Simulated scan of single mutants.
Amino acid sequence: MGMEIYENTALVVVDVQKGFDDEGFWGRRDNPGAEENIASLIDVWQETGRPVVFVRHDSVQEGSPLAAGSAGNAFKDFVAERRGKGSGPELLVTKSVNSAFYGEPDLDAWLKGAGVRQIVVVGIQTNMCNETTARMGGNLGYEVLFPLDAMHTFDLAGPFGWTATAEELTRATAVSLHGGRFARVVTAREVVAAAR
């Protein structure tokens, strides 16, 4: 089944911030190749003049490595140095919750104003802000592509003494989104090839 990436498909780069490098706070992560795949997608989007949305999480939680104004709030270098380099439209959205659709400025209004019908969600974390943004995008009527290797997450403890590894959470997110038809789970390579 072929994949079509439209001329105005938006790449939504979620929370690729330095604070996520704090292993002492977050724990063990999966997918060490995430950053390279995110960079390759930003590059092809900028080369082809498609819209890129950079999303930054300005945490209001006490002690968060992503707190507004902290060093960890800044975008990782490979993202920071790519901002403003594309020939297409670019937007910065800041948020303090999981969904990029609940940020400033209004992402849905910006996308609809540009006639965007398809979005590609990448960034950090797979099962948190990425999944929430993808689900909301699907609910708002966008065709959502979710390149699973262009994101990562962390091991997590839950209720009843349950824990899940980052890999288990990634798989659960992929099955929920794809199986539930919120999004189409794909690879970065497939998206790059279709976008070229």
Score class of each variant (00 low, 15 high):
Ala100Ile: 00
Gly137Phe: 03
Leu145Trp: 05
Ala174Cys: 04
Ser59Ala: 14
Cys129Glu: 08
Leu145Phe: 12
Asp30Ser: 15
Val122Ala: 05
Val79Asp: 05
Ala194Gly: 13
Phe154Gly: 00
Asp106Phe: 05
Glu4Cys: 04
Arg28Phe: 00
Asn139Gly: 15
Asn37Gln: 14
Asn37Cys: 06
Ala195Met: 06
Val191Asp: 06
Phe78Val: 01
Asn139Leu: 12
Arg29Pro: 12
Leu41Cys: 11
Ile38Glu: 14
Val93Tyr: 01
Asp149Lys: 05
Ala134Leu: 02
Gly88Pro: 14
Arg184Met: 13
Glu7Pro: 15
Ala172Glu: 11
Pro147His: 04
Ala39Tyr: 11
Leu169Met: 07
Val192Leu: 09
Gly88Trp: 03
Val60Pro: 06
Val55Thr: 04
Arg181Leu: 15
Ile42Cys: 12
Glu131Ile: 09
Glu81Met: 11
Ser64Lys: 02
Ala174Val: 04
Phe25Thr: 03
Asn139Arg: 10
Gly123Gln: 08
Gly179Glu: 08
Thr48Arg: 13
Met128Val: 15
Asn8Leu: 00
Pro105Cys: 14
Val53Ala: 01
Gly24Tyr: 00
Arg28Asp: 02
Glu168Tyr: 04
Ser99Phe: 00
Arg83Tyr: 09
Phe54Ile: 03
Ala172Lys: 01
Gly69Cys: 09
Arg184Leu: 13
Thr163His: 12
Arg28Glu: 09
Ala34Pro: 07
Phe146Gln: 04
Pro65Gly: 11
Ala194Met: 04
Gly19Ile: 01
Gly84Tyr: 08
Val120Gln: 06
Ala195Pro: 13
Thr170His: 12
Ala166Gly: 05
Ala74Gly: 07
Pro89Val: 01
Lys112Ser: 14
Ala166Asn: 07
Thr187Gln: 14
